[in-house]
Amino acid sequence: MNDLSTNNKDRHFKGQYADEEVVAFFRSHWIILLPHLLIHAFFLAVFVAVFVVFFPFIISFFITPLGEVVMVVAVICITYFIHRFFIRLVTQFLHTVIITNFRIVEIEKFILFKDVQLSLDMKMIQDIEKEQNGFWKNILNFGELIIMMSSSDIRVLKYVPNPDFHFRLINRIKRAYVQKRFQDKIQDRPQHSPILHENLTFPGVRISTPDI
């Protein structure tokens, strides 16, 4: 729990409030990387196979002027694919959804290429729906969280790992948030002094309390 001396400002993500606590965070499920990994593995296998099978031919071909151009293009392409592959892996790490005691923050940070931050306030969240339809989603335990906002806007968090846990967690935080707001409202309400008969005076009239 936060005490008054704790300052969480910009501690875990840019724009974090001083009294905001990170309850949990998650990244997209690894299934999102699978097509990417398979494509790169396929190209690597083809490249190695071609190089091994046609090695004598490649050696003699690279000596020709056309071969030199092909070699430069091949080096450029392979370098590009290596960078692309690792940047995609890093992107997986930097795309986080953070659940705090006040809101849900989705951060898409791609270092040099993209910086998007989306914030969903707990007070604006009307309803949450968990969807885990399909064989693979149930076997590998991932799914979607559909968040209905009070402005009739719908936000979908895709490829959420362990959606059941995050669904229950968001519901619990939202309930705690609503209860806290309600208590704060009661405390902030102005205190009225009780109406006593002695205090009721009108010009020229004195209301006396009957003796019991």
Partner: peptide, 20 residues
């Protein structure tokens, strides 16, 4: 840039948040 960002906004990792 990546490590500057990571150092600035450090998150507490667990086996549930790491890749695989």
């Amino acid at each position: 840039l990546l490590f500057n960002y990571e150092r600035k906004y450090k998150m507490t990792e667990s086996r549930f948040t790491l890749l695989f």
